[in-house]
Computed example of a mutant assay.
Amino acid sequence: MPVIFFVVSFCSSLVGAICGIGGGVIIKPVLDAVGVMSVSAVSFLSGCTVLSMSIISVFKALKGGSAKINTKLTTWLALGSVFGGIMGKMLFQHIKMAFANENVLGMIQSIVLVLMTIGTFIYTLKKSQIETKRYENKLLCLVIGIILGICSSFLGIGGGPINLVILIYFFSMGTKEAAINSIYIILFSQIASLVQSIVKQTIPEVSLVFLITMVLGGVLGGMAGGIVNKKISEEKVDKLFLALMGVIIFINIYNTYVFATA
């Protein structure tokens, strides 16, 4: 079983680092579909894996100097995502306690992921026909960051496809530039989410073997993804991203059905 978890975390982090979606948007629904552990445990492991991947990806980008992290702009988004990450974790715990049934929590997460992924898929197909903006207002960046952080933390996916859409539409970034800036934002939101879980003592029971295995997969996947991202064109990144979104949509539809009928 640890081998399966490693493969899932490595492949998800590899693709996540290439496309800038964090990997959690793959890990979360795949492990939910496998059904070997609770929704809370999956969300926690997914978040830890995404955090490890984002640390490696951002470090390599800053050290290498080849990737364009717009720190003057994206740092405000990242700071907003810290507050959003805290709020998203609170929302997660509130819904978990309100329903006292993790199947309901899992169903809500799956539905939100389906809607978010479909919206992202449509936007990516039509983005050449959509005029983008180039906002630089710091307060707006902070608000957008909060929204991204809430989605990231509540869903346990890191940042997911919504980060790319926001960065491309509101700030006129190219796909590859948006990818690394998305991971930069994810880094902050996941740190906030993890710290809150530790402080509030809401970390679910998970096997240390699974945690170490997935974090290792996240680190190696992030390293490999950064190398691949430098070598492929934006067109290929877009095609990979679209294919990935299509798979994720169907997995989340399946998960919604499973949680609803459990």
Rank of each mutant, 00 (worst) to 15 (best):
I111E: 13
I111D: 07
L79Y: 07
K63M: 13
Q129V: 10
I69E: 09
A98K: 14
M87D: 07
V195D: 02
T74F: 09
L91C: 09
F59P: 06
T132M: 13
I168C: 02
P161C: 01
I198N: 04
T71A: 06
V82S: 10
I146F: 06
E102D: 15
K68G: 10
M97T: 14
L113R: 01
E102N: 03
I146G: 06
R134E: 13
F170Y: 14
I118E: 12
Q93L: 07
F188I: 07
T75C: 13
M87N: 01
A61E: 02
N137K: 10
N181E: 11
M90F: 08
Q196N: 15
I166N: 02
I186A: 03
F121T: 02
I69M: 05
F92T: 00
S189F: 00
I147C: 15
N103D: 13
Y123T: 04
I191W: 09
E136N: 15
G158A: 00
S189G: 06
I146S: 01
A61H: 08
I118K: 03
S152R: 00
K127P: 00
I95S: 01
A67Y: 10
G160M: 13
S172N: 15
I69D: 13
K138F: 06
L73V: 03
L139V: 12
Q190S: 10
T132Y: 09
V114K: 04
P161S: 12
I144W: 07
I183K: 01
Q190M: 13
R134L: 10
S66H: 14
R134M: 14
G149K: 02
T71L: 11
G84P: 12
S81C: 11
I186P: 02
K126F: 06
L113P: 05
S197C: 08
I166S: 11
G85T: 08
A178N: 06
F59V: 08
K127C: 09
K96V: 00
A98N: 15
M87Q: 13
S189Y: 09
I185N: 04
L164S: 05
I95R: 05
L148T: 03
G65K: 10
G119A: 08
N163R: 03
V114I: 11
L113H: 00
I122W: 07
G80I: 03
